[in-house]
Computed example of a mutant assay.
Amino acid sequence: MYKNIKGFSLPETLIAFSCVLMIASIFIPFLIHYASQLKRLQYEVEALKFLEEGVEKAIVSDVYVNHSRMYGGVRYELNWKDGGNEEACVQYHERGTGLNEVCISKGE
């Protein structure tokens, strides 16, 4: 009988390929979840940046107006609650989770 000394045999190749598929099936869902969580955190960081800029601008100019901006296809809206300088909130709509809000109040 001839011996295969030039490389892998078919059963060895199939076993190695199935091991690679099993490892990929474990890690791919984890990576997808990690990417979506990273995107959600990116939206929240942008909302916090916009909130900080809006509050700083309002403190310096003493004008508390609502305004909005688009960044990365997401609309961020800065709203002053109760018509004054007591609380500021940034609302943004994240795909899949709905409307999110980041707020800061004068007492914080």
Rank of each mutant, 00 (worst) to 15 (best):
H67R: 15
G72F: 12
E44D: 12
T13E: 02
M70N: 09
C89G: 09
L51G: 02
S36F: 11
I28V: 15
K57Y: 01
V20A: 14
I104P: 00
G83I: 04
V63S: 08
E77C: 10
L78T: 05
Y2E: 13
C19D: 01
Y92A: 08
Y71Q: 12
R95K: 06
I23P: 00
N66H: 14
Y92P: 06
I23M: 08
E87W: 01
H67Y: 15
E94P: 02
R40V: 11
P29Y: 11
E94V: 08
E12V: 03
S61N: 02
C19V: 02
V45Q: 13
V55R: 15
N79E: 10
I26R: 05
K49I: 13
V102K: 08
E108P: 01
S36R: 14
E94N: 04
G107N: 06
I15C: 02
V60W: 01
T97C: 04
C19K: 02
Q91T: 10
V20E: 00
F27V: 12
G72W: 15
N66G: 07
F30I: 13
W80E: 07
G54F: 06
N66A: 14
L21N: 01
E52W: 04
L31P: 07
I15P: 01
Y64G: 04
V45P: 00
S105W: 09
G84C: 12
E46S: 15
K57A: 13
V102M: 07
V20R: 03
G84E: 10
E77Q: 07
Y71C: 04
G96W: 13
E52Q: 08
F50G: 00
V63W: 04
L51M: 06
I28C: 10
E44Y: 11
L38K: 11
E86A: 07
G84A: 13
L78N: 09
E46R: 05
M70D: 15
F17W: 03
L38H: 09
L78F: 11
Q42T: 12
V63K: 04
K6F: 04
G54E: 03
L31S: 15
L38S: 14
N85L: 10
G73R: 05
R95Y: 05
G83P: 00
K57S: 09
S61Q: 03
M22A: 10
K106V: 12
G7W: 02
L31F: 14
F17S: 10
Y2S: 08
H93A: 14
D62R: 12
K106M: 06
Y2C: 03
M1C: 03
V20C: 05
I59R: 14
A16F: 00
L99V: 07
S25V: 10
A58R: 07
L78R: 00
Y43S: 13
D82A: 04
E12W: 05
T97P: 06
S61C: 07
E12T: 02
R40H: 13
Q37S: 14
N4H: 07
A88K: 01
E94W: 15
E86V: 09
N66E: 15
E101W: 07
I32H: 05
N100C: 06
N100W: 04
Q91M: 08
G107V: 08
K106G: 01
N85D: 15
